[in-house]
Simulated assay, not measured.
Amino acid sequence: MSYNFATQSCCMRFQLRWHQLRSGDTFFNLAQQFNTTVECLQRLNSWAVPTNLPVGCWIVVGVMSPTTSDCRNFQLTWHQVRSGDTFFGLAQMFGTTAECLAFWNSWANPNALPVGCWVVVGVSEMGPTTTPTTTPTTTPTATPQPCMRFQLRWHQLRSGDTFFNLAQQFNTTVECLQRLNSWAVPTNLPVGCWIVVGVMSPTTSDCRNFQLTWHQIRLGDTFFGLAQMFGTTAECLAFWNSWANPNSLPVGCWVVVGVSEMGPTT
């Protein structure tokens, strides 16, 4: 089964940042870890009971569009996974597409949705939250950075992962995984680090059309410093590496520091 992400430019404007819940997690410490607020976590994860977060399931810790990352401007619709649920069936139920569901829920294996956990089945963006003022002002229109045209889909490596089984899990090919993750040694994938399993732009999802530049994290690295080193911005690095905690980059793992799109392969 393969998804044609290139035709789904509408849902692709929303980039969701996820965290898999672990024992001891609370909204308070997660807010500190991901530079957000408890209020935002509660708003984005309306299904969650803060005193009983289900270990192993996933929550949204941030949403970005080309114009804003203010959690107050987004409305997420959730569904608790039941036995037999598929993205195709849920797409029909909630008036969306399987491609959009797979894109929003980038952590999920479409062939084995975890029963009892929750998936996002709708994302909408509302107008900006404003504070009334007695003095008329002109609010500049936010201009999306060019880097936000590229959406990267990530997977955290686990014991036993291989490019072959990951290609099957994420409906891609071993060749694409090798091309996108040029730093990786297929016979020695570092457990706990993250690899890219797909890249999309508004025009294509063909891995052959993308070139990723990688950097292995060293002690003391920050997105601000890396942005200066590689001629980009900290905002772009945070957007591309949506899995990463900017305050605690994992030494030895790899981050994307550049994305370019080439002409279509003929």
Rank of each mutant, 00 (worst) to 15 (best):
S2T: 13
Y3E: 03
Q8H: 02
S9R: 14
S9W: 14
F14D: 09
F14N: 07
T26G: 07
A31H: 15
F34I: 01
F34S: 03
N35W: 12
T37H: 13
Q42R: 15
V49G: 00
P54S: 09
G56H: 09
G56F: 10
C57F: 13
V60R: 05
M64I: 07
P66Q: 10
T67L: 14
T68V: 10
N73V: 14
Q75P: 00
T77R: 09
H79C: 06
Q80S: 13
G84P: 12
G89N: 13
M93E: 11
F94T: 13
G95C: 03
G95A: 04
T97H: 06
N105W: 08
P110R: 02
P114V: 05
V115P: 00
V115Q: 12
G116I: 10
C117S: 12
C117P: 09
V119L: 15
V119H: 01
V121D: 02
V121P: 02
S124H: 09
M126C: 11
G127R: 10
T131M: 02
T133C: 05
P136A: 09
T137Y: 09
T139Q: 15
T139Y: 10
T141P: 00
P144L: 12
Q145L: 15
P146W: 05
M148D: 07
R149Q: 10
H155M: 06
H155L: 06
Q156L: 00
G160N: 07
F163I: 04
Q169I: 03
F170E: 06
F170A: 07
T172C: 05
T172D: 05
T173V: 10
E175I: 00
C176F: 01
C176T: 01
Q178G: 12
Q178T: 02
S182R: 08
S182P: 01
W183D: 05
W183N: 09
C193Y: 03
V197D: 06
V197T: 11
V199K: 02
V199E: 06
M200T: 10
S205Q: 14
C207L: 11
C207H: 08
F210S: 11
L212E: 02
W214G: 04
Q216R: 07
I217T: 12
D221P: 01
Q228C: 10
M229W: 04
M229V: 13
M229C: 01
G231K: 03
G231F: 04
T232A: 13
T233Q: 04
N241W: 01
N241I: 01
A244S: 07
P246R: 14
N247F: 07
P250M: 03
V256Y: 05
V259T: 03
E261I: 08
E261T: 07
G263N: 12
P264I: 09
T266R: 09
